[in-house]
Computed example of a mutant assay.
Amino acid sequence: MSSKLYVGNLSFETTEIDLQDTFAEAGTVSEVALMQDKFTGKSRGFAFVTMSTAEEGQKAISLFHGKTVQGRALTVNEARPREDRTGGGPRREFSGGNRPDRRY
């Protein structure tokens, strides 16, 4: 079973090929997804790397978490599922301002 890893604190010059080559030291890399800004196309400083087995994923975490790559100490851990992000806080009904309820 594969292991998906979150890799954070990346240099903005890091490429998917750089990550592929780096994480290949820990085993077979199935996929690399470098997150980019949708408007500028520039790196957002984090990526997801999928290792082919859970053991290789754990090895990659132990090898690269805290390791300095391109002048930055990497954060490497198991990726968590994306949290559901509903748009903002609770909805409230407004009914005409702050008038007291007057019933006669």
Rank of each mutant, 00 (worst) to 15 (best):
V49S: 06
A73W: 00
M51I: 04
L63R: 10
Q70H: 12
H65I: 02
K38E: 07
R72Y: 10
R92F: 14
F64T: 06
A79D: 07
R82P: 10
A73H: 09
A47C: 04
G57V: 03
T68H: 08
Q58E: 15
G41K: 00
V32C: 05
T75Q: 12
G88C: 05
G41Y: 01
E93I: 15
T68I: 13
R44M: 12
E31N: 13
V29G: 02
E93K: 14
F46E: 03
K67W: 01
T75N: 12
G57L: 07
R91T: 13
T75C: 05
R72G: 01
N77E: 15
K38W: 00
V76R: 07
L74D: 10
A47D: 03
V69W: 10
N77A: 13
L34M: 12
K38V: 04
Q58M: 10
L74T: 09
T75I: 14
S62N: 13
V69K: 08
A79C: 11
Q36V: 14
E78V: 13
V76S: 09
H65D: 15
E31P: 00
K42V: 06
R44F: 01
G71R: 10
M35R: 08
T75W: 04
T75A: 09
G89I: 05
S62V: 08
V32M: 03
G89M: 10
T86N: 11
S43K: 01
T40E: 02
H65M: 04
R72S: 10
T68C: 08
A79N: 06
F48R: 04
P81L: 08
V29Q: 02
S43T: 08
N77W: 00
F64A: 07
R44G: 00
Q70N: 14
S52Q: 11
A79L: 09
G57D: 06
G87W: 08
R91V: 15
T75Y: 08
T68Y: 03
V49Q: 02
R72E: 08
M51Y: 03
A33W: 03
G66L: 09
